[in-house]
Computed example of a mutant assay.
Amino acid sequence: MEYKAKYITDDIKLSCYEDKFFKSDISFECHMLIWFISGETKIVQADATYLFKKGDIFLIPRNQLATIINYPKDGQPHKTVVMHLTADMLKNFYADLDVKPDVRHSQRIQYYNNHPLLESCLSSLIPYFEMQEIPQNIASLKITEAISILRAIDKGIDNVLANFEEPGKIDLAAYMEKNFMFNLPLEKFGYLTGRSLTTFKRDFSKIFNITPQRWLTKKRLELAHYQFVEKKMKPIEVCYEVGFENLSHFSYAFKKQFGYSPTELLAAKN
Rank of each mutant, 00 (worst) to 15 (best):
M1R: 05
Y3R: 13
Y3P: 01
A5H: 13
D10H: 11
I12Y: 04
I12W: 02
L14W: 06
F21R: 04
F21H: 10
F28V: 00
C30F: 09
H31P: 01
G39E: 11
T49L: 06
L51P: 00
L51W: 00
L51D: 06
K53N: 13
K54M: 13
D56N: 15
F58Y: 15
P61R: 01
P61G: 03
P61N: 03
P61I: 05
I69G: 00
I69M: 09
P72T: 01
P72F: 09
K73G: 03
G75R: 10
P77V: 07
K79P: 07
L85G: 03
L85K: 01
T86K: 06
K91G: 07
Y94Q: 11
A95I: 12
V103T: 15
H105R: 08
H105V: 06
S106M: 10
Q107R: 15
I109L: 14
Y112R: 12
Y112G: 10
Y112C: 14
P116M: 10
E119I: 04
S120L: 12
C121T: 06
S123R: 14
S123V: 05
L125Y: 04
P127S: 05
P135V: 10
N137D: 08
K142R: 15
I147V: 15
I147F: 07
R151N: 04
K155C: 11
G156M: 12
G156Y: 12
I157K: 02
N163S: 05
N163K: 01
F164H: 11
P167M: 11
I170G: 10
L172R: 03
E177L: 08
N179H: 13
N183R: 09
N183E: 08
P185H: 05
E187M: 03
E187N: 05
Y191W: 06
G194P: 09
G194A: 11
G194Q: 08
R195G: 03
S196V: 10
F200G: 02
K201W: 04
S205Q: 14
F208N: 08
I210S: 13
Q213H: 02
R214E: 08
R214L: 07
K218E: 10
K219M: 08
E222Y: 00
E222A: 12
L223F: 02
L223R: 02
H225Q: 03
M233Q: 11
E237G: 01
Y240R: 07
V242R: 01
F244H: 00
N246A: 01
S248M: 14
H249G: 05
F254I: 02
G259E: 06
T263K: 11
